[in-house]
Amino acid sequence: MKILVPVKRVVDYNVRVRVRPDGSGVDLNHVKMSMNPFDEIALEEAVRLREKGIATEIVAVSIGVPQAKDTLRTALAMGADRAILVKSGDDVSQDLEPLSVARILAKVVATEKPELVIAGKQAIDNDMNATGQMLAALLGWGQGTFASAVRIDEGSALVTREIDGGLQTIRLKLPAVVTTDLRLNEPRYVALPAIMKAKKKPLEELALADLGVDTRPHLTVVSATEPRQRQAGVKIQSVDELLSKLKNEAGVI
């Protein structure tokens, strides 16, 4: 079984992001970038399926600026067998919206013919939480979103989903799209020798223009603002004081 794992290059989760002075978005210049954490989980799941003898090939695909090659190299070091970069431009602050990404991925799926696409449930930059769903719709495939467990079983995937108030397990006919939640697995650390070996694995580059996908935006960012600064907490002396504050100031009891 071939698995396709889309991986996105996003601002590293440790970075304190700053809004551009004109309010048009987050400043991405000279900022440390890493693989979207949910995509790491997706890749880890694919690698585990290969270790169990279920998957035979893992293809990582990224859509973005040439620097996304670094993210793909990480994917190769984590265990992907091949990588594909769809070059969408050179401007690091340009971001494709989910529908465009899903359309591009659908094209890649058409040529790669994977039986399973495992994607992160969302990218931590824009938190759209839409690409996996849109891709499944475009392909006419089943979807198992927010997966916290995945089992492959005779042409189908049993996906446990984290839903409000509990867990739901669904059976999907393959091919299918699965999106990962935080508790699906804990991605392994990359071993240093794997970084060297990754350099020898194939990384193919495609130009967005050659795919003939309509990527005209449907969304406009109106404004981006910094979250309000958190106010420092107060120390209280006694339980009585706590109760009185909860009653009179917070109004919660």
Binding site: S34, D70, R73, T74, A77, Y189, V190, L192, I195, M196, K199
Partner: peptide, 18 residues
Amino acid sequence: NETQEEVRNTTRNFVNAV
């Protein structure tokens, strides 16, 4: 270079966590 950067990131992740 890219490889050295990647080694640094990988090592740093392990160091921060463990």
